[in-house]
Nucleic acid binder design. Sequence first.
DNA 1: CCTATTAGTACCACATTGTGATACTAATTC
DNA 2: GAATTAGTATCACAATGTGGTACTAATAGG
Lengths: 109, 109
Amino acid sequence: MLGEFEYLLIAAAVKLGDDAYGATIKQEIERATGGRCSLGALYTTLDRLEEKGLIRTRMGGATPRRGGRSRRMVQVTRRGMQAAAGFYEAVASVSRGVAWAVNRAEELS
Amino acid sequence: MLGEFEYLLIAAAVKLGDDAYGATIKQEIERATGGRCSLGALYTTLDRLEEKGLIRTRMGGATPRRGGRSRRMVQVTRRGMQAAAGFYEAVASVSRGVAWAVNRAEELS
DNA sequence: CCTATTAGTACCACATTGTGATACTAATTC
DNA sequence: GAATTAGTATCACAATGTGGTACTAATAGG
């Protein structure tokens, strides 16, 4: 099954859509967790997820006018979506009726 | 931060309340995930969570009439609750608006 | 009492996942 | 062609997760 960080990464990438690449994913994860996402975790996990076929990445592409190195763009595969959905369902299921989840029942059914 | 399995274990224990011990926790996790929870994962994680002060365990107690070895009863500490709530909030936050979470919300509403 | 049955916990070596520190690369601007 | 900007790469190590196998304790039957 997916690890916690792997899930965060996939979910963030899906949310960001065409704008998903290393740096923006890092920001999104930091926003969601309240701020901690090391670069090491990010890029090694990117590599591992790609090996497992849960995401695909490609460099650069259509460069707008800006400085800096090429971006590593991220796309989540169908299998990646399925794995993420499974993780989510497990967390949602075990959390049903538990105190810290009750107030947010609408958010994470 | 908590790992995925650690979260499942804490949430299951909270849900089970006074009936939380190794074997029932295993069942609850298997129900939630759709069936896979090794004994190794269970008891080593129990040990690790106790070392970190996120749960407390004690053996046996008020034995009803039944065979079998003493149960290892589990109680989640305040710090355990907080850690679990943090994990949950991170997953809920990053999942907001993402397809597999949205569809689920519609199904259950 | 001794053997079987039942219900459950314990341990361990290994695989996978997560982290911090440090270094590197490429495009643009001046 | 040096500085600036924006970003990616890698590594050794720490923490978490797994399967298999062994063990333990209470009860029941004879």
